[in-house]
Amino acid sequence: MIRPATPDDVPAIIDMIRGLAEYEKALDKVENTPDMLHETLFCPSPSVFCHIAVDGERIAGFAIWFVSYSTWLGTHGIHLEDLFVHPAHRGGGHGRRLLAELAGICVERGYGRFEWSVLDWNTPAIDFYRAIGAEPLDEWDRYRLTGPALEKVAAGRTR
């Protein structure tokens, strides 16, 4: 079963975020806390959303996403920030059902894209995504500003 996250899910989501970061060899980069996540997901006007995969009474996985926009298509889309299924629940269709839920939201709302990123060494995920028909955008490189570089660029704005 797939359902929207509730405030009671926050501790489990934080644990899964940490599990994903550990798998991606970046656990030391996680700064998110239960309070921060609760405020992000359950504030009066959230910009980030989470769906939960449930297996019986247990949380099996999650998908955290936000609405994006394509100037070329002239429509919104969904950007999947994180998808994680507990190792004990992998192979049970939970990841596929989470992606299907988000794809369904795209279709229902008339959104034109559903996109995400994957680490280039994560072959199990890449194989899974290709198996459902997703295609890599080889011609695009992602860029990111954080920390001091972000602050330096922000310092150059005019007011």
Rank of each mutant, 00 (worst) to 15 (best):
I2P: 01
A5L: 02
A5I: 01
T6W: 07
P7N: 04
D8I: 08
P11T: 01
A12S: 06
D15H: 02
D15I: 00
I17Y: 01
E22I: 08
E22W: 06
E22C: 05
Y23D: 04
K25G: 12
K25N: 15
L27M: 10
L27P: 06
D28K: 11
K29H: 14
K29Q: 14
V30W: 03
N32G: 09
T33Y: 03
T33D: 02
P34M: 08
M36F: 12
M36A: 15
H38K: 15
L41Y: 06
C43M: 13
P44N: 10
P46H: 11
S47G: 12
F49P: 05
C50M: 07
H51C: 14
I52L: 05
I52A: 06
A53W: 00
D55G: 12
D55H: 12
G56F: 10
E57L: 12
E57G: 10
R58M: 11
G61K: 00
F62Y: 09
A63N: 03
F66C: 10
S68V: 04
Y69T: 04
S70K: 02
W72C: 12
W72P: 08
W72V: 11
G74M: 06
T75C: 12
I78G: 01
H79D: 10
H79W: 15
L80V: 09
E81Y: 07
D82W: 00
L83S: 01
L83W: 00
A88S: 14
H89T: 05
H89F: 10
G91A: 06
G91P: 05
G91Y: 04
G93H: 03
H94W: 00
A100K: 14
A100W: 08
E101Y: 14
G104E: 07
E108W: 09
G110M: 10
R113M: 09
R113V: 11
F114G: 03
E115S: 10
W116T: 02
W116E: 01
S117W: 10
D120G: 10
I126K: 03
D127A: 14
F128W: 11
Y129A: 10
A131C: 14
I132A: 08
G133M: 07
E135P: 04
P136E: 06
L137C: 11
D138K: 08
R142G: 14
R144C: 09
R144N: 03
L145H: 05
P148C: 07
L150W: 11
A155D: 13
A155F: 05
G156V: 05
G156F: 01
R157F: 09
